[in-house]
Amino acid sequence: MKYVAALFLLISSLGFSQSSDEVAVKFTIDRFFSAFHAQDSVEIKKTVSNHVIMQTITADKAGKSMVKTEDFSKFLKNIVAIPKEKKFEEKLLSYHIQVDGNLASVWTPYQFWFGDIYSHCGANSFQLFKENNAWKIIYIIDTRRKEGCQ
């Protein structure tokens, strides 16, 4: 009976373990956000491809949903320009990672805080490409809302 229980635990743990690619993909996302919070544009650039696309799903003044493409270099300038005494944090609530060969997809629900003040929530969707044995973010899209948050 002990052997059956041990075998069951072994098989169960194998089913829930992450692949080395999943770990590397998560590391890339964590590195991106670590650099984001440190306002380190040089380090952020190391996590993305040279042609990264950044979009957000938002609403126009009439409340109609739309997709807005953001210039990544402008995003970096805006992050660096935040005064250092203004603390902000995008708290990732979970990671849903899928990998197929050199393509990875990551879904990260989040909450955004300025200091101790809650700002908004949403979800990020990242697409990554494995290039020269390194995972790079090639596409980012997010949602932002103030209501219906966890």
Rank of each mutant, 00 (worst) to 15 (best):
M1V: 13
V4M: 06
V4S: 10
V4T: 10
F8Y: 12
L14W: 15
F16L: 15
S17N: 02
Q18H: 09
S20I: 09
S20V: 13
D21Y: 05
E22C: 01
V23T: 07
A24S: 14
K26C: 00
I29Y: 01
F33E: 05
A35G: 07
F36E: 05
Q39F: 07
Q39S: 12
D40Y: 08
D40W: 05
I44M: 05
K46Y: 12
T47K: 03
T47M: 09
T47Y: 06
S49N: 10
H51M: 13
I53E: 07
I53V: 09
I57T: 11
A62F: 10
A62L: 13
A62K: 15
G63C: 03
S65N: 08
S65A: 12
V67I: 13
K68R: 11
T69H: 04
S73T: 08
S73G: 10
K74M: 07
F75Y: 12
K77C: 06
N78K: 12
P83D: 13
P83V: 05
F88Q: 00
E90G: 03
L93D: 09
I97K: 00
V99A: 03
D100A: 14
N102T: 06
S105T: 14
V106W: 09
Y110G: 00
F112N: 03
F112K: 01
F112P: 03
I117P: 03
I117S: 13
Y118V: 04
G122Q: 00
G122T: 00
L128Y: 04
L128I: 07
L128T: 02
F129Q: 11
A134M: 14
A134Y: 15
W135S: 06
I137Q: 00
I138T: 15
I140N: 00
I141F: 10
D142S: 04
T143Y: 01
E147L: 14
G148V: 05
C149A: 03
Q150K: 15
